[in-house]
Design a protein around this nucleic acid. Structure first.
Lengths: 157, 157
DNA sequence: GGTTCTGAGTTGATGCGTCAACTAACGGTA
DNA sequence: TACCGTTAGTTGACGCATCAACTCAGAACC
């Protein structure tokens, strides 16, 4: 930083930060465990399938899908390759723009998602939604958006 | 689950959840990038060093350290091995209980931490603390604790 | 005092994410 | 149409996390 004057965290700030840090470490793991055990899917893989299922024709360009699932294009490419090998997804290059690859959900992929969704939603409810009051949910949304603004400015433009 | 009646997420709940999910995906990455670039440390490695530095004698049993850094014992073991190879940490078995391994910070480890801390704290400030009002910080702490209660009941008992 | 049980820690194989390097296609310019 | 820069996507090597299997030390029980 080049500045000797460091503004260290005050005790209250530190406590909040440690709580958030613990949350970031443990919540993803808890969700992955449930999904992996009950459906053989990663949370990221689930988001990929969900992102496709929400789109018209169950199809979406890779870049767009990567943005939706909060991952890099490289990561998505690897994951989609594996999902394709499992028969959940297929790829074809766009006829309009030869650079674009559109991934689309197969019927098996759809069924896999339908089978996985109830358990996943239940886990999200149990761990997050039902642990908070409606007021806290609103607070959390605002807090999350403000932090994301700093972390990743220029998303959803 | 075994129940056909699934309580799906309502739109507001879904939005909050997607925001939190995006946060969980991106905040760890952002912090790791800063630490890796400026200090060659992972966030987890940083927490390990920080956990040792806060302890009397700069030493702590592995299990305790794993709890502090929010990781499994196995993960910690691998990480401490690497940190030991880099000269930042050393291990020795406790004289009181032969099962316990205590890790302790070397002088080089201490210097590494001191060098890394300002940049890391600045990143935490910039991305999280300064993005929120004091009121929101208090809200976030409560929210985080309530979720952690569900995710990992029986921590800090 | 030997046997079993539990808790602490380590290890190696496997699988996933990241990074850098690459291919290929489009758009513009001459 | 040839060249250049840009954008989309893929690939392979490397590093880290996870899981299961293992070792070893204390506790408990008889």
């Amino acid at each position: 930083m080049g500045d000797d004057e460091v503004r260290w965290l005050e005790p209250a700030e530190l406590q909040t930060w440690m709580t958030l840090a613990a949350l970031m470490f443990k919540l993803p793991g808890a969700l992955d465990v449930q999904l992996q055990r009950d459906s053989g899917l990663t949370h990221f893989e689930y988001l990929v399938l969900a992102g496709l299922s929400e789109s018209p024709d169950r199809a979406r360009p890779m870049s767009e899908l990567a943005g939706f699932a909060n991952g890099s294009l490289s990561r998505l490419s690897h994951v989609v390759k594996r999902l394709e090998q499992r028969g959940f997804v297929r790829r074809c290059t766009s006829s309009e723009d030869g650079r674009i690859t559109v991934a689309y959900l197969t019927d098996e992929g759809w069924e896999q998602l339908v089978a996985a969704a109830p358990g996943h939603v239940a886990a999200v409810r149990r761990l997050v939604i039902d642990a908070l009051t409606p007021e806290q949910l609103a607070q959390l949304k605002a807090i999350g958006e403000q932090i994301l603004q700093k972390v990743d400015p220029g998303r959803s433009c």
